[in-house]
Write a protein that binds this DNA or RNA. Structure first.
Lengths: 348, 348
DNA sequence: TTGAAAGCGTTACCAG
DNA sequence: CTGGTAACGCTTTCAA
């Protein structure tokens, strides 16, 4: 293994060091014969350019920083598809990924930028009022947010369109003739931290339910796990009014325990009440029973975040980029929403 | 935000650049007054050392490379605790984490080392015969494997002790008077890739079952998901002999669907047959129903891998490090194993 | 189309 | 205990 430098390559190829550099970066026309000789030399020496030296001289690290939330329950929240997708798109564009945990707060951001550890940052797990956003906005490198703080401070944001998700859920229930809906809200861990998506969803679902005249009850906070789910189900069963009841579960990790609690009470979603979850399609499909879901799109969101970031790093000639990029969720029916009775309005 | 260099700090503190460097690294005695002045200057300028320059001059990146498997189903396999724990321990020791996906194969390793992107590598998802292991062994930087290939080629390995896990499972069943055991084996995705832990567990479980005279049937491959689990349950119910039947599910992601399949057939683990899963305690506790498990210890394994790696980077004075470090799993009873009948041998 | 050489911001050796 | 200075390996002007 190596320890060969571009100087070695240059010597072997009989060219100057700068020519080697230009062959690698393509920033200069190099005659085909020379190019080939250089490439051959590189191959022969299994040459790899020294990343540090490159970063120093070229002011480019070819690294993106990824700030992820590693709290106790991120395991349940489907963080992995985000990381995975960003890692892949990064590599596809010749970037490495440096992982930073959110618990470092602003210090992590300052380190990433100050030490020139990366060329740009993707930051997840944004709170409504996030001190890090101001810091991020002041950094000398671009930052893309996955999530929408109250004040993006000029930063580009990519996320699922939770507003649309709420609308879709309400429409689906109203259009299939439901008389009432319960929202199984977020756990304290989410509401306490005022994570941005919770507020966005709840505001929107309230607004649309009112617009469409759907009586709404929001249960919150709802504890994660068996006990919380059981309590939520109790509440719904005890307080539901006569007629067709819809239950919407916007928080991914709450869906499975809720399904268990329903089963334990012999309540069958799709027959005794309706259930819509917000989760990945995979999770909805793979669950027991599969449930009608509004898709979280972690892969799509990550891909777009990465795309935005690459554009920021190299704006190119085209028109600008939208500062807020919301991915539209899709509804997939899997039988846990009771169909409209014959006489009701037809589904959208 | 900065763009301040150590030269700026030196000027402001009225010392030479090298003194600033020595204050940071502590590789030289600096008088307390000078030290304080330098530290003050650094704070005032919010100075951060340029990582690339540092790597170039000091031949140390303070980065560890982490090679993770991001295949289709890693989401199910509990990869996140590994990543999370490694990220935290790395930070606690002033290292950054660079994420590389396993699908890059040896090329990823060569890049990491060749470009001096990191000082050491942790590699997960090791196959029995893994071409990357040879490559890793030849790298000029230390590599720690999470998993045990057939030939570690001199590399340090850290992993769960699957041999002990198998022994514990067999002992638990035998000691509680079981007459037979079924192993719900690994899915094709695992067996095809010849992932190391599968072979280790199966060999060991066979050996110990024989030693203790427990009739054993291994079902493999077992498809993931509903269908595969249902088929496995069918098979067990159709072929079990009279008496007490134990079922061992070594693969994490298979446990949940299996529990569903059992419930669908109205078979109650702990009453109609016994079930032991290998999974994190969290998963076992949180499942429906909770099941008796042998603990995977992702956090412990990761922590030890990181410790080994730090030791390799700075061997220190003490005695050597064991080349193979296996974390002992624990059995936690949660009622899915039928207790020994009064007349049987007492549990261990 | 190519070369020479001046940095980039640290570290660490050699002096004092 | 501290300062000066030569690397470290690459990029990028300036020249040809």
């Amino acid at each position: 293994m190596a320890a060969f430098t571009s100087k070695d390559v240059a010597r072997l190829a009989g060219v100057s060091q700068s020519t080697v550099s230009y062959v690698m970066t393509g920033k200069r026309q190099i005659s085909e014969p020379t190019r080939q000789r250089v490439l051959a030399a590189m191959k022969q020496l299994t040459y790899e350019p020294h990343a540090g030296a490159r970063a120093l001289a070229g002011r480019r690290t070819q690294v993106v920083g990824l700030v992820v939330p590693f709290d106790s329950m991120s395991e349940m929240t489907g963080l992995l598809p985000f990381i995975e997708t960003i890692a892949s798109s990064a590599r596809a564009n010749d970037y490495e990924v440096l992982l930073v945990t959110a618990d470092e707060g602003s210090a992590g951001l300052r380190r990433l930028a100050g030490r020139a550890l990366c060329d740009a940052i993707i930051m997840m797990d944004i709170q409504e009022q996030d001190e890090r956003v101001q810091v991020a906005a002041a950094l000398p490198i671009p930052v893309v947010l996955v999530g929408m703080p109250d004040d993006p401070a000029g930063l580009y944001c990519v996320d699922l369109d939770f507003d649309a998700a709420a609308r879709i859920a309400v429409d689906e229930l109203v259009d299939s003739g439901h008389d009432e809906a319960f929202i199984i809200g977020y756990p304290a861990a989410v509401t306490d931290r005022r994570l941005n998506f919770a507020g966005r969803f709840l505001r929107s679902v309230r607004r649309h339910a009112e617009m469409r005249g759907l009586p709404l009850t929001v249960l919150e906070p709802v504890a994660l796990g068996r006990a919380g789910a059981a309590a939520a189900v109790e509440h719904v069963l005890a307080h539901r009014r006569p007629g067709r009841t819809g239950v919407v579960v916007p928080y991914n990790a709450s869906i499975r325990p809720l399904l268990h609690a329903l089963r334990a009470r012999a309540v069958v979603p799709g027959r005794d009440l309706s259930l819509i979850g917000i989760s990945t399609d995979h999770q909805a499909e793979d669950s027991e029973p599969p449930y009608t879901n509004i898709s979280e799109e972690p892969r799509d969101v990550s891909r777009r975040a990465m795309k935005t970031l690459l554009w920021l790093l190299d704006p190119g000639p085209g028109v600008g980029h939208p500062p807020v990029d919301l991915v539209a969720p899709r509804l997939t029916r899997r039988g846990t929403v009771m169909p409209a009775p014959a006489s009701a309005a037809r589904p959208s």
